[in-house]
Design a protein around this nucleic acid. Sequence first.
DNA 1: GGAAAGAACTTAACATGTTAATCATCTCCC
DNA 2: GGGAGATGATTAACATGTTAAGTTCTTTCC
Lengths: 176, 176
Amino acid sequence: MARKKLDEIRPEQGDDAAARRTPMREFSRSLPMSLLRAREAVMRQFRPSLRNHGLTEQQWRILRALTAVDEIEVTELARVAFLLGPSLSRILRDLEGRALIERKAAENDARRAVVSISAKGLKLIEAVAPTSEVIYAAITRRYGARKLAELQEMLGALEASLAGMGAEDAEVEADE
Amino acid sequence: MARKKLDEIRPEQGDDAAARRTPMREFSRSLPMSLLRAREAVMRQFRPSLRNHGLTEQQWRILRALTAVDEIEVTELARVAFLLGPSLSRILRDLEGRALIERKAAENDARRAVVSISAKGLKLIEAVAPTSEVIYAAITRRYGARKLAELQEMLGALEASLAGMGAEDAEVEADE
DNA sequence: GGAAAGAACTTAACATGTTAATCATCTCCC
DNA sequence: GGGAGATGATTAACATGTTAAGTTCTTTCC
């Protein structure tokens, strides 16, 4: 009944044998979907191992980031772990409750909080890391080290390309 | 006043403190992080426009997928929109409440539900699509059409590479 | 033809994503 | 020095991700 009046939006070549099996070819090939599926394919490899150690992906990112520094302010941690403030707040509360991290106030600014990994947290990291390394190595071997490096290069370039594109709503100029 | 939360998370380098910084180079260059940042950079472009129309990214994915078919079963919809069952259930409930989609039971199997987009839903899609196309075109122009195609090719290859890698926990064999 | 196993959702429960609001502190400037 | 505004962090509120459990219906198989 209500059917494709949207077909001209993404002109697509007429399919061949996949008439029934592959409906929204063009949709599934959009850049956001490609990135989403690729990332999910990668993370699917890691999640079970992390889960076995009682860690979520984000908790792992935070602990992993903390191992590289003595201590770090919360805002800076959000930047490197690529988490939004509210998510980070919740996770830090949990990790602190589990004694995996330590938190204190900054010396010269009572607003800022400084976080560091605890000995217990380090031990946990050391328990998980070997498996993660094995998985990462398997991915690299399957996909090819050179190709993987090239992919990361292109992803970084994409990020850089879009860095300037203002995230203005783009509605006004598009509609008028 | 409180606009730009995520924007400040990525202030680009070039700071005074950049010398002492750059601690977790290796961490920030991991494949999952690269994919996450790239996808976020892309979605940041689309989210404001969708939001102006009262749609989340996932709701848009569903409606967009529905425009390509007459009707579709829930499980198949979950596959093409790349959503897990529980998320899809919740979103469909909401979209049905807003009369953007219609749902009925399958004829020969009372377990299955069949979903289709409503006239109202189609109208909404048609209102959002032009802006989305403008944004997509801008991204393509900035990054390069050829490079974009190559990136998607490589992302698909990555997905395919990992398709076989069992998601077995990989803990037992790694620990013993 | 009916119990058991499977299938297709759906609900539940918890963790995170996302935006807005709040709270506390700090900085600037009069 | 004190108040307006900026800043760092948290909380609030809602939507989704993720896994497990529950519901309803179907198929299998004895």
